[in-house]
Each structure stands twice: as structure tokens, then as C-alpha cells.
Amino acid sequence: MPRKQRRVVFTVLFRLGTFLALALVLSPAAWLLASVVAKAVPHWRWSVLWTGLTSTGGGLLGPVTGTLILMAGVLVVAGSVGVLAGVHLSEMARPRKNGAEGGTWLRMASDVLSGFPSIVLGYVGYVALVVGLHWGFSLLPAVLILSLMVVPYIAKSTETALRQVPTAYREGAEALGMRTGDTLRKVVLRSAAPGIVTGLLIALAIAGGETAPLLFTAEFSRTLWTGALVHAHGFGYLTYVVYTFWDTPSKQANYLSYDAALILIAMVLLLLVAARLIVARTQRHSESRAR
């Protein structure tokens, strides 16, 4: 083939290829959404949201509240630890003597932790907390292990958000004689709040959709949460329903599995859209919009 023709062919193939790639990703994504909706909606009844599970069917009140409680627990534990860790990495870690950035080892540990497979963390939770400390399958080990999983993410997004606060803000605060605490609360954290909240929302979406670390720390329970942090006999949550109920003989239970998948997707979408809206809003109001 002559050179000119070859160039034309390659270019056309390239253009087609990029769109084909996009279609290859978006069509399964749309198909996934459509198939979950198609499986759940025909049998959907709103009462799944306020009736409890029975041995063959019932509703998803327990798992739905369970997932919300888990997310609240993660928000408290991982949220506070992660945001403070981010503050440390961005505001307090001293630079090294050779001028390099401080906190290198801490960041490295954070990277290792976020590379840790979630099922392995779940196994550690089972061995050390559920069996080792005799806590049994219950809320506390589940929240701790989930938190350990998402803390690196929250710390990282907090650090990034804090670093985008202009240094002039801090210098101005210092020039006015503000104390470190006031500067952090009133100036730095307030300007970084949208970024931090976005990170928290995404972390919550991750935590709510997670199954593997919960299998051996919370296991499952058909009953409602009794309020016990430890020494419970399992703790119900949505992802477990999706994981196990679809191949049980009971038709009702199968439907519950699809319903749970639909509720999960709706929850995650809500969180991610909220995060996106916050980002869009702050971008509109920030000075550095033009790039």
C-alpha cells in the first residue's frame, strides 16, 4: 500500500478505535444498569424498605439500616482519623533536612495500606478481632476494618484539598496574629471544606459497596441491629444480600437480592453525584477556574 493511503487508513482506524473503546466501556455500563433495573423493578414493592427479613423473604429493613449504620460508623472513625492525618501531612509534617518533603514514610505506609487487598484485611479482622479479642461477628470489628481500608483515601483527598489552599491565606492569618488552631479552623479547613467533603462522600460510597472485608467481621444477621457494638451474632448489610440471595431456591429471596443491588446502586449514585455537584459548585466560585 502506498504511504499516503496507509496514513489515511491508520488515521481513520485510530479515530474509529477511540470511539469503539468508548462504546466498549459505556455499553456494558449501561447494560449493567439496565439489567439491574430490569430484574428489580418488575417485582419492586416499596414495603421492602420497612419490613424485616424472614427466612424465605420479607423485606430489607435490616440490611438497609445496617449499611447506613456501617457508613455512619466509618464516617465517624475513618472521617476523623483521615481528616486529621491529612492535616498532619499537609500542614504539620516538617520538611526534611535535605529540603525534601516531610512525611515520606507516612505516605509510603498509606500507599501500602491502600494496596492491601480488602479480603486480606477482612481475614485479619476475623483472626485478630472476631476470634482473638472474642468480639464475635459484630458492628465494631466491621467498622474498624472498613475504616482501615478507606482511611488512606480520606487522608489523601484531605491532603490534596489542603494543599490547594493558597499559602497567602495562612500567611495572612499568621500576620493577623491568629493562633494555629484558629487558622486551621477558620481559614484553612474552611476553604478546603468542599474538597474534604467530596473525599468523604466518595469514601462512604466505597465503604457502603464493600463486601469482602465484611464477610468475616460482620458475617450476616437477619435481625435488626440490637445496639450491641461487640458480642453480637452477626450484623446485616446490603452487599451480603446481593452476594448470597440470588442463588437460593426461594424466589422471594432472589428478588430481594436484585432489590438490594438496585438500592446499593441508587445509594452510590447519590453519593457520587453529590460529590460531583460540590466539586462543580466550588469550581464555579473559585478564582483559578480558567486553566
Binding site: 459505556l26 449493567l32 463486601t211
Partner: peptide
């Protein structure tokens, strides 16, 4: 595509098997 990253893996698995 970002949303696809947020889909819980167990839901993806359910779709995969069914």
C-alpha cells in the same frame, strides 16, 4: 465512567454471573 468505578463490585459480579 467515574460512576462505573463506583458500582459495588458485588453488583458487577451479580450482573456477570446472571
Amino acid at each position: 465512567i467515574e460512576l462505573l468505578a463506583g458500582v459495588p463490585s458485588v453488583v458487577l459480579g451479580l450482573w456477570g454471573v446472571l
